[in-house]
Design a binder for these strands. Structure first.
Length: 401
RNA sequence: GUGGGCGUAGCUCAGCUGGUAGAGCUCCGGGUUGUGGUCCCGGCGGUCGCGGGUUCGAAUCCCGUCGCUCACCCCA
């Protein structure tokens, strides 16, 4: 035997048992989203690298160290898509969807790629279901999207918490960042070393520190939520009241951070305890500047993405794999008859299988039992029987049974 | 990139302080059976991740390496 080849690190085979679970998740997502007027869109698995470096943000972890980029042979750099929002916006612009009645409501479902170290709930190739709404800054869109993701997770049986925040607009956020960094520097001697080293890089992370003295400092730190301008504050208040109307519990978490640069205003994340260190099942936010950033007209947008693998973990989705056949055709020395009968049964709309494993007659009967075949035909030298009794027209008998 | 745990049949694992491998499940066959779910018997299946070292002898000890996994960073 030659050396074995395993699936690349961080990738996985979706075996029949898992494909049934995932199909459940996918069906639920489609049903829910299509009922709300979202139409499916699929974009290529790879895009121009620039789409992500520009759209997601040059300084983000995704762009700096997690992209699978390659030269296409003609000097162009392509990248396996690490996320779905920028590609959807690209398609929106490319196909002139801003001329469609606003807003444009889209969803997608497919594989994404990030070159990270794998761990529980985190893979290098993973699947996401995502929804995006382009062309409306109505707070009801924010609320609708959150409700849809909530309902999806709830329907599948996941126990989740909703964390909610507002990131304001780019100007407010930049000003706040300065204010926070200044505050951290002023209290530098009280901060843990890691937090201190990140003051300029990512000051918001200081809120997540588990260092006690740092926590004491952060308790009094300025919060972005309190710095929203009147427009952003009003938008946020509207979103909140709509969520309350929908009866969806949430927690305001002003420390919510997302690793993508394009977010503005509403930001949210659903978390589950069933995922190990990767608590996020799905999340998203508003990105009012993104479409313009990648060359389109100024267009408000908002969306979310949820990991299929994480949903399966969080919801402990279980599904039965095999659908029992209506008819199993066992045979001994009558392959052609069995073949013809099986095809006829399928043509008549039955789920039919015939013996293909070279088993003994006894083995065939055991097998038919094991897969819970509803009816059993036996074709051998003694004749043709259905469920133990001599039979003429097996297909018709099974159909009328 | 860094750290912890683990790598023995397709799967789950046993194998004490070293003497060149076992069980259960699965699968296939036989027996029993109302030609089929139980039960009984048998069979297929492993270069003990890989490479060195110690030893008369290593799955078992030592070193290295690769892989898996969990965690850090970050995220779906």
């Amino acid at each position: 035997m030659s050396a074995k080849i395993a699936a690349p690190r961080g990738t996985f085979d979706i075996l029949p048992e898992q494909s049934a679970q995932r199909a459940l998740v996918e069906h639920a997502a489609r049903e829910l989203l299509e009922a709300a007027g979202y139409a499916r869109i699929e974009t290529p698995a790879f895009e121009a690298t620039e789409l992500f470096s520009r759209g997601v943000g040059e300084a983000t972890d995704i762009v700096q160290k997690e992209m699978y980029s390659f030269d296409d042979g003609g000097g162009r750099s392509l990248t396996l898509r690490p996320e779905g929002t920028a590609p959807v916006c690209r398609a929106y612009v490319e196909h002139g969807m801003h001329k469609l009645p606003a807003p444009v409501k889209l969803y997608y479902l497919g594989p994404f790629f990030r070159a990270e170290r794998p761990q529980k709930g985190r893979y290098r190739e993973f699947w996401q279901v995502g929804a995006e709404v382009l062309g409306s800054d109505d707070p009801a869109v924010d609320a609708e999207l959150i409700v849809l993701l909530h309902d999806l997770l709830k329907r599948l049986g996941a126990t989740v918490r909703l964390r909610l925040s507002s990131l304001a607009n780019a100007q407010t956020r930049a000003a706040y960042r300065e204010e926070l960094a200044a505050y951290l520097r002023a209290n530098e001697h009280e901060l843990s070393e890691t937090v201190r080293s990140r003051i300029d890089l990512n000051p918001l992370r200081a809120f997540d520190s588990d260092d006690l003295r740092t926590q004491a400092v952060m308790a009094k730190a300025p919060r972005l939520i309190d710095r929203l301008d009147s427009e952003d504050a009003k938008h946020f208040a509207e979103v909140r009241s709509l969520l309350e109307l929908a009866g969806i519990p949430y927690e305001i978490d002003s420390t919510l951070v997302r690793g993508l640069d394009y977010y503005t205003r509403t930001l949210f994340e659903f978390t589950s305890d069933a995922l190990g260190a990767q608590s996020g099942v799905g999340g998203g936010g508003r990105y009012d500047g993104l479409v313009e950033l990648i060359g389109g007209p100024p267009t408000p947008g908002i969306g979310w993405a949820a990991g299929i693998e994480r949903i399966v973990l969080a919801a402990q989705v279980s599904a039965t794999r095999d659908v029992p056949p209506d008819l199993y055709v066992a045979h001994e020395g009558r392959r052609a008859d069995a073949f013809t009968l099986t095809l006829a049964a399928r043509t008549a709309g039955l789920r039919a299988q015939m013996e293909l494993g070279g088993r003994s007659l006894k083995g065939q009967l055991k097998h038919a039992e094991r897969i819970s075949a509803r009816h059993l035909a036996i074709l051998d030298a003694q004749g043709t029987r259905l469920d133990g009794k001599p039979a003429e027209d097996i297909v018709r008998q099974v159909l009328s049974a």
